[in-house]
Design a binder for these strands. Structure first.
Lengths: 396, 396
DNA sequence: CGGCCTTTGTCCTGGGTGAGGAGAAAGTCG
DNA sequence: CGACTTTCTCCTCACCCAGGACAAAGGCCG
């Protein structure tokens, strides 16, 4: 099942591959406009790429006023596998070399079942996608896990919500199973890379990507590159204290952001409100389902339930408080909010914005968009594909 | 008074210049070990540098077992001017090309007197240093100002504590006056660069440098490079909220870190304590001087004054609270604390450490040193020299 | 003190690379 | 249909640079 053995031989070829990945099919002339190489040099490098099979001819380009140029594109048969392991579900997608998602599967699953069970599931999903004719094999795979990762080795380290994964050689194991190169990263970083590649963060060099799901994390992009920190735990903002002596948190402290607002906390609050008789809407849903989730709160809120709206607003304030601090510190050009609770949508966004614009200094917030992610569920898998393609499209 | 017109012609020469700057005089052979160039290529580049006069021969090196090598070093006559404009004082220093401080002057001065008055002062101090025979002229100057800077242009933007400087063309003006290239940056960033070059942060790629003076700021170094943010206001952590509905701050909000702990806040608290009869020690000092400063608190604390110790501890808790959040977010390899209040020393450090180690996650704090800066008053001017030398020792 | 080894520095050459000109091929526009 | 534009290929020439050969300079040991 080994497929793409070819790798760019030098930085020029790597550059060209990335241009083709990000810009789609392109004529040699257009490429020449972007890379500052002499025509002869460019021709040589393109010919070499054609030889490797990574790149193929793709008909004629439209004329720019003279002779029409021959288009080239990345090999249409290249396939990347993007895997996004969340706390409660798994996403697997197949992309082409331009990182367009060709097929996508989602499956509920508790990450605490451990790496072996999850891997089995992931491989089954990948096989299913392959069986449906989307891919004959994979040229590379990216995988995101909900916890810190020692990036160079691709191994989770001390992940609080998935203790069974500590030290499990994810990269090694998946590479063995799939027979292709694999890169591993934190799921939040992948979401950031996804939004950077195909979402709202295109053309922004420095931005933050806050993912609110079961937990809360933040992807940090500096100068176009993901910042992972010295131990791979950068962006772990879920345990920043937002309420002095607040609610007890699983981490042992009190008043952590995650304890006061996250998918899990929101569900708990909603159930409390339902049982306490504060919201008929929520009580009805609890009656129906036996338990509540963030999605129930979102639904209740859009049905006008005052309690749900208040819960969201309050949560938004807490997140906003942290984001405001991070904005002052980091001075990003954009803040993206995504993750499972984006269903809470504009109510959440509004209260986050209010809090940030009120608390941070004007110079930092003056031209700072705070927006929802564009890619939704596909952000993670797109980012995963981007991760492995960045790796493969770099000099060997 | 123009001096060094020469600039490295390519990246190799730039690399060599930086090696000589950071490592002092060096033999050709030693340089060869570090740069991965063929001996012939290296010889050519070194010869060219010798021709420009940037580099000079410096006798024979010790033998490494065979023929002795000829040492080379940066021209001993090269001089950089480092200027550090604080809120209440100005530091000016002369360094050689290895960024060793040859002479240093400090002068109390209120930055709010405006750029014209401050420039006059700075130029007078530079002239004095020159007159004392330390320099015949300057090959470049770096200058730090206590507020955000639009870095490429070298112009302060919307600085809260020095409104008169907004938009003043610092770089342009100083370059005119001194007749040499000038670079401008935030004073905190310069402190970080100073500690990176010659202080505790040598060999650390990602670290934070918290400067506690009249205000509070934080230098951010990512992958060896200072992160300035999209509008140059990164690291502006003085207005992060630490106490909900806390003390009113000059910025219009409440509970800002700066309002609860900084040189200015500490002095105010001390005076209140003295007047309120809580501390005989402080009252005596207030009696004597008519007002109190952070230095008085430091002195009282080391004399054992309980109130002062408590003030410092409380302040340390507030700073520690913010640093803990930043550590979770950024996952640095080192936190340096410096600035005027380092006189508070280990009492402060201890309470910051306690707070950080207690509040942040073990993975981020596990191997995280939190230390005082090594360079004291010289950090800023050293960083300023480093800034301009980085600029000059890069390909034209 | 004298051979032998190690290290350093210089010279030279051969392979490789890449910039840019010339010109052919392919289109557009009037 | 002809003049102009754009694209692409070929070719040449200058430059660069790695590495070998060799000379110079010094240490080490008997």
């Amino acid at each position: 099942m080994r497929r793409m053995t070819a790798r760019p031989a030098n930085a020029h070829q790597a550059r060209l591959l990335r241009l083709l990945r990000d810009g789609g099919p392109n004529s040699r002339a257009q490429l020449g406009d972007q890379v500052d190489l002499s025509r002869s040099k460019l021709a040589v490098e393109v010919d070499r790429l054609l030889e490797t099979g990574l790149v193929v001819a793709d008909g004629l380009a439209a004329s720019r006023g003279g002779r029409r140029s021959h288009n080239i594109r990345l090999a249409p048969g290249l396939r990347f596998l993007g895997v996004d392991i969340g706390a409660t579900s798994v996403d697997v997608a197949v992309t082409n070399a331009e990182l367009e998602v060709l097929g996508h599967l989602n499956q509920p699953m508790d990450v605490r079942e451990g790496p072996v069970a999850v891997f089995e599931q992931v491989l089954a999903m990948a096989a299913k996608l392959r069986a449906s004719g989307l891919a004959e094999g994979f040229d590379g795979a990216g995988i995101g896990v909900p916890g810190p990762v020692r990036f160079p080795e691709g191994v989770p380290v001390a992940p609080p919500i998935m203790p069974g994964w500590d030290g499990f050689p994810v990269r090694e194991a998946l590479s063995q199973e799939l027979g292709c190169p694999v890169m591993v990263d934190n799921d939040v970083n992948l979401m950031a890379m996804g939004e950077q590649h195909a979402g709202v963060a295109r053309s922004v060099g420095d931005f933050l990507c806050v993912k609110i799901g079961t937990g809360i994390g933040c992807g940090i992009v500096v100068g176009g590159e993901v910042h992972r920190g010295v131990t791979g735990s950068a962006g772990d903002i879920g345990h920043i204290q937002v309420v002095p002596d607040g609610r007890p948190c699983a981490c042992g402290n009190r008043g952590c952001l995650e304890a006061h607002f996250s998918g899990a906390a929101l569900a708990r609050d909603a159930e409390d409100a339902a049982r306490g008789g504060h919201s008929a809407e929520l009580a009805a849903r609890l009656e129906g389902a036996g338990r509540l989730t963030a999605a129930d709160v979102a639904a209740a809120a859009s049905a006008g339930d005052a309690t749900s709206l208040e819960l969201i607003r309050e949560g938004g304030n807490h997140v906003g408080q942290v984001i405001a601090a991070l904005v002052s510190f980091f001075n990003p050009g954009l803040v993206v909010i995504g993750g499972g609770v984006t269903g809470l949508g504009h109510t959440l966004l509004a209260s986050v914005r209010t809090q940030v614009y009120r608390t941070s200094l004007p110079l930092a917030t003056g031209n700072l968009p705070i927006v929802l992610g564009e890619l939704g569920q596909l952000a993670g898998v797109t980012g995963a594909a981007r991760l492995i393609s960045d790796h493969l499209f770099s000099p060997a």
